[in-house]
Simulated scan of single mutants.
Amino acid sequence: MKTLILSNRVPFPPNSGYPIVVYNTMKGLLNLGVEITLFSINTNQHRVDVDDIYDPVYDRIKFHSFDLDTEVNLWGAFFNIFSNESYNVSRYYDDDAAKLLENILRETEFDIIQFEGLFVVPYLDVVKTNSKAKLIYRAHNIVFDVWERLAHSERFTPRRKYLQFLARRLKIYETEQINRFHQIFAISEPDRHSILSFGCQIGIEVFPVALDFEKYTIDLSKTSFPTLFHLGAMDWRPNKEGLEWFIDEIWPDIEKLSSELRFYIAGKKMPQHFYDYDSDNLVVEGEVFDAVEFINSKAIMIVPLLSGSGMRVKIIEGMAMKKCIIATTYAAEGLNCENGKDILIADTADEFYRCILQCITHPNRWREIGENARKTAERDHNLATISQRMLNVYQRLVNG
């Protein structure tokens, strides 16, 4: 089985949501004997020096990348208004990248070609012209939904109007592409229902985030308490806005609960104003070298997202590390969790306060939720099980 995977960023190292999903997809399929070729757009924002990649998965695949500047350009954004294209998506297309992809398709006859997310879909016509492979679209989230929610929460009118404009363009593009594939993989059940509502007329199955649990080793002797933590890339706007809301509206009351309580925030591209916040108990670590080690060292995970779509990989990693996770309904969207059993849901300042107070005053409570979270993660996000299901779909498409 020869498979070509297209990704909008290089998934090495697998240190955040999208790279982890793509990386583990490849790892699981390789373990089942699938031959994998990876074509990645190497963007300025997430630039990876390909010559410095040292990874066992990388050594087992054929890899091609194309360096592309996808940064927002003022003039490009302005002139895009007078076109029919989605500016969010069109920035990922380049004629030279298309030629490289065309050469790859001419050299190898693939059985399956999998598009990892919306931002590589602009290369669909190139693929259709040069390959007879079965085509799969992996929806990591409902992209326009993220932008609609961001627009809804934006208070500055001109910016809100432009975000609404971008969301409308994205919605048109995203919904028009759905039926151009042979199969859709949704990352969660809510996303599956959304895609069906777009008029999806092809096969669609749910493939959630998969984890290799051998990587997630818990050492309780290194876990400090009472500690709260948040881990997420700050160049993703929903993470930044959610954390700002929590620190401004909730943290001032939380830190009064105990002089020993610490709140650690970590993630790449950390804005300066988080470092400047006036709180002795707030510890800003910025980008951490080892996310699993960071998660292991803290007790209670805070995920205060107010917008977004898809499935939060960092929550699943927290579950794998037996963390008690306190998250908004948005953040927990798509997870098969039960409030009060393997996660705590809080959507208001008062709910966050009560959940955190409960965990601090009853330590056995957060430990019990963490134990249940690990069991849920093992049940729903096992790499071997999900990879085998994916290969079964590949074989059905090729043989059908």
Rank of each mutant, 00 (worst) to 15 (best):
residue 109 E to H: 11
residue 109 E to K: 13
residue 109 E to A: 12
residue 111 D to E: 15
residue 111 D to W: 11
residue 111 D to V: 08
residue 112 I to Q: 00
residue 114 Q to N: 06
residue 116 E to T: 09
residue 116 E to V: 08
residue 116 E to P: 10
residue 118 L to P: 04
residue 119 F to A: 02
residue 120 V to F: 00
residue 122 P to V: 08
residue 122 P to N: 10
residue 122 P to T: 08
residue 122 P to R: 07
residue 123 Y to P: 02
residue 125 D to P: 02
residue 125 D to C: 02
residue 126 V to L: 07
residue 126 V to F: 09
residue 129 T to R: 15
residue 129 T to D: 15
residue 129 T to G: 06
residue 130 N to G: 06
residue 131 S to Q: 06
residue 132 K to L: 11
residue 135 L to R: 05
residue 136 I to E: 02
residue 137 Y to W: 14
residue 138 R to Y: 14
residue 138 R to M: 12
residue 139 A to H: 07
residue 139 A to V: 01
residue 140 H to F: 00
residue 140 H to W: 00
residue 141 N to W: 00
residue 141 N to S: 10
residue 142 I to A: 03
residue 144 F to N: 10
residue 145 D to C: 03
residue 146 V to S: 05
residue 146 V to F: 05
residue 147 W to K: 14
residue 148 E to I: 09
residue 151 A to M: 00
residue 151 A to P: 01
residue 152 H to V: 09
residue 152 H to G: 06
residue 152 H to L: 13
residue 152 H to I: 09
residue 154 E to D: 05
residue 155 R to D: 15
residue 156 F to V: 11
residue 156 F to D: 08
residue 156 F to P: 04
residue 157 T to L: 15
residue 158 P to A: 07
residue 158 P to T: 09
residue 158 P to L: 07
residue 159 R to P: 01
residue 160 R to T: 00
residue 160 R to L: 00
residue 162 Y to P: 10
residue 163 L to W: 06
residue 164 Q to N: 15
residue 165 F to V: 04
residue 167 A to M: 06
residue 169 R to E: 13
residue 169 R to P: 08
residue 170 L to H: 06
residue 171 K to F: 08
residue 171 K to V: 06
residue 172 I to S: 13
residue 173 Y to M: 02
residue 175 T to E: 14
residue 176 E to G: 03
residue 176 E to P: 02
residue 178 I to R: 02
residue 180 R to E: 09
